[in-house]
Design a protein around this nucleic acid. Structure first.
Lengths: 333, 333
DNA sequence: ATGAAAGCGCTAACAT
DNA sequence: ATGTTAGCGCTTTCAT
């Protein structure tokens, strides 16, 4: 560890001005071949690299795309991988920033991160599951899976939640289930409503009346699911199948069922949503609706690069895919 | 999208100097209570956040830890999650940077990234699988799984690769395999040599001669594994089992086997290394050697924070654990 | 208590 | 072809 080598050190060692060094490094003309070579030699010898920070202060562009997340959790990092690989071969580097790690409150991390990095460090941003949508931002951004389903305004990439809910429920119906319950997601998020709507539509399409007592809250979280799960299984005419709004809820549903002596999928079929890594590690492996996270990341890159090229915002919806595994089966009857 | 709001905008709107705004924001004294409140109100109204870049140019500390990677692949992002969660509750934010996405050459990304970000943007760095060890660096750093096994000098966190390779191979031998191939990792990395050495040692311990034709290159990447995988299966006396140096190679090996009409594990057993999330999502689920990535990330944080606190470098080795799943079985005959 | 001014490392006008 | 200078947004002496 030692002091940072600056352009001044190079200039001094080469016996020229910093401006000349800058020109030499950036391939600007106005530098004689001899000087150019000499400077390059000194740069190599000293191991000099220009400071991204200083450069970006001065320049307009940094050729860096920021992926802004609240926290590096599985969902976010999978998206990050998609973004990163989509940026391969372009001139852009990727910088991922979790702005709320130290900040106590998660509220508004997207605006805060965007303000801190935008306009100086990054040319554009990809926001992962923002809960609020920034309006005035210093750089173009694309929101992935935003809380509110926007069909205009900011550029967004989200999954077809309704179709996913429909497919999950349809799968249970096809297996022969008729008493099909739903564990809701976070009702403050559009995705939860869309998934529930898919569930309702599938039932209606099959001529099965929607029974409100079969719909309970789960809030996308295990702890919030527990009570509803018990309530469902205590029903006189208990459901034989459950579509849970996400995998965490589905796994909690299965845990509660087990606690009550029910086997999955023999006594109860359960479908989740997301296809988190844990879904396959789980016993039984979870039947679920997969979000194509890598593809969504790539799509976000495409939109963002288009925006940087001056094209207008776009809203993209990606297909959700039903993955049938071991947590669903024909009802015992 | 709009122009960035700067401290000047705030100063002007509040009718004070930028110096006063700066003091107010950073809680320095020399600001009257009335002015303080007024400035805070304007900051809130304008939605101002100081630029991380400008701040870090001027200040010594940024309270940001950098996780520097060549690329955001599964291994790196899992480590990132560990680092991120270990930094929870500290004053530090996490910034992850993939410095070689745009750069054509992977060589020296660690030095380049460290030079570009260190000393200005980040207070310390965690280098994920560096191929070279920077010597003169502007900030303290910890290397995770470095290419060269260093027992002194730079701070490092690595896994017991040799033991892992040994355990993987021993497992295949115990199942009854004798023709056991190895798909090498990146031969410029110490980890690859260590894993291979574990493989060789296990064979020798069982009295099985090492057959060089059964050792092919995979470079830790799917694309680089394809050719070797085909070559192995085309052998007149093809192997019945393969120890691949990482999960990506193992999964590619399985894909190629399937392409050639071979079933895993019936016709071919495959063991990977790493236990990436995809390992359980894979069909069949991958038998592999788990690196405790989250724990390694946390350990790196511990070392780095200690170094920032003035304590000396430390080298840590973490245990590797064989996880037996569905991609290995007794040989067919 | 407040503001003017210097300077962090760099690039881009603008001299020379 | 080369150097001088201004300034990106911010913090920090140092005056006032």
């Amino acid at each position: 560890m030692s002091r940072r080598i600056t352009i001044h050190d190079v200039a001094q060692a080469a016996g020229v001005s910093v401006a000349t060094v800058s020109k030499a490094i950036n391939g600007r003309d106005g530098v004689s071949p001899a000087t150019l070579e000499h400077v390059q030699e000194v740069v190599a010898r000293l191991g000099y690299e220009s400071s991204l920070v200083a450069t970006s202060m001065r320049r307009r562009r940094t050729d860096v795309i920021g992926v802004l997340v609240a926290e590096f959790e599985p969902f976010a990092v999978q998206l990050l991988q998609g973004v990163s690989s989509a940026l391969h071969g372009t001139r852009f580097d990727v910088l991922a920033y979790a702005g709320s790690v130290s900040a106590g409150e998660h509220l508004g991390w997207e605006r805060r991160s965007l303000s801190r990095l935008g306009g100086t460090l990054i040319d554009g941003a990809i926001l992962v599951t923002p809960t609020t949508m920034p309006t005035e931002t210093p750089v173009p951004f694309v929101a992935i899976d935003p809380s509110a389903g926007t069909d205009e305004g900011p550029a967004t990439v989200s999954v077809r939640n309704e179709e996913g809910g429909f497919a999950a429920t349809e799968h249970l119906i096809a297996l022969g289930h008729r008493r099909i319950a739903h564990v809701r997601g976070r009702t403050d998020l559009a995705s939860a409503h869309q998934r529930e709507h898919g569930y309702r539509r599938a039932l209606e399409a099959a001529g099965i009346p929607v029974d409100p007592t079969l719909i309970v809250d789960g809030g996308y979280r295990a702890a919030a699911t527990t009570a509803g799960a018990h309530a469902l299984l205590e029903l006189p005419d208990a459901p034989t199948a459950v579509f849970a709004a996400n995998d965490l809820s589905a796994m909690e549903m299965i845990r509660v069922a087990g606690e009550r002596g029910l086997r999955v999928p023999e006594d109860l079929s359960v479908v989740g949503f997301d296809d988190v890594p844990e879904a396959t590690a789980h016993t039984p492996q979870l039947t679920t609706v997969r979000q194509p996270l890598a593809a969504m990341g790539a799509e976000a890159v495409r939109l963002l690069l288009a925006m940087l090229g001056g094209e207008p915002n776009e809203q993209v919806r990606m297909p959700a895919e039903l993955i049938v595994r071991g947590s669903t089966a024909t009802p015992a009857r």
